[in-house]
């Protein structure tokens, strides 16, 4: 990493009022200032190291973990997740799969594998964040192809579609409240229309992402969970069926988009 991101932030703060008047999509310009620099690269490197390091009670690396394309195959795997895994008899996204491999291969307790998936503000990336950043990066340019062949994959998509429209809580929000129309924003933040190919594709292909405002890599599980928090719902359980269903729903609608994660987020 170099100083460019920091300089870009300074330049942004100075020019913010001007930009805001001229262009609704100031965050796109903000991101453009980073150019090819994405601080997620550092986290990706940590993830690669972690993947190859012998860890856990059994002291083995994750390199035997099957992400869907065979044991240890990482390239292109993220673009095809979530998918059904016979050994787990469950549709799993990357994070669920990693937790599964940490338990089955490395011998961690199930609760240990999911104990702390997200880093706190100012803290280094968690194992999950680092692994997700690296593994997603190994699908750069690979078209999204979330499978819909196994009945449980179809069921996950259908469940995701229903949950997307599920209005509840004191604010009556569903995902669709904010994400079912094109060219809409909250304050100045553009809202992707996740029910249309264009919005679903660009959103799905750029998570995990480096969240500039939080100085951290955030994963797709985090993204969905934080939307749910703002819906005023109770906490979405990490790698739960509902979370995986929503990710499957978005992923299927994003078919064909070349992966571009880790993305750079506001």
């Amino acid at each position: 990493m170099n100083w460019k991101p920091a300089l870009a932030v300074v330049a942004m703060v100075i020019s913010l009022p001007l930009l805001a008047q001229n262009d609704d999509n100031i965050f796109a310009q903000y991101r453009a200032m980073f150019g090819d620099d994405n601080p997620a690269e550092l986290v990706e490197m940590q993830g690669e190291e972690l993947w190859k390091t012998a860890r856990g009670p059994r002291h083995v690396a994750l390199t035997a973990c099957d992400l869907g394309l065979g044991a240890g195959v990482v390239a292109g795997a993220y673009a095809r997740l979530p998918r059904y895994f016979q050994d787990a008899d469950r549709v799993q996204d990357l994070e669920a799969r990693l937790a599964y491999c940490m338990v089955k291969l490395q011998g961690f307790k199930p609760e240990e594998a999911v104990a702390k998936p997200y880093s706190e503000q100012g803290q280094p990336a968690t194992d999950m964040e680092a692994l997700a950043a690296w593994i997603a990066g190994q699908s750069r340019g690979v078209p999204v192809a979330v499978p819909q062949t196994h009945p449980k994959e179809k069921a996950a998509f259908e469940l995701g579609r229903q949950l997307f429209n599920y209005r509840a809580g004191p604010y009556d929000f569903s995902c669709a409240t904010c994400h079912s129309q094109s060219d809409r924003r909250i304050r100045l933040q553009a809202l992707p229309n996740l029910t249309a190919a264009k919005g679903a594709r660009s959103a799905f292909a750029t998570w995990p992402g480096y969240r500039i405002s939080q100085g951290a890599v955030r994963t797709m599980q985090w993204r969905v969970g934080d939307c749910v928090r703002q819906q005023r719902f109770p906490q979405l359980v990490f790698t739960s069926d509902a979370a995986i269903a929503l990710i499957t729903y978005m992923g299927v609608l994003a078919a064909g988009e070349p992966m571009a994660a880790p993305g750079l987020k506001r």
Binding site: E158, P234, S240
Partner: peptide, 28 residues
């Protein structure tokens, strides 16, 4: 036909109460 989707069952197992946001918020 409906893809075995049962949002109610999935919701029951996928959320946990946190601070002021209890599970009753999911009852429509």
């Amino acid at each position: 036909v409906v893809g075995a989707a049962d949002p109610d069952a999935a919701i029951k197992s996928s959320f946990k109460a946190k601070n002021q946001a209890g599970l009753e918020r999911l009852e429509r």
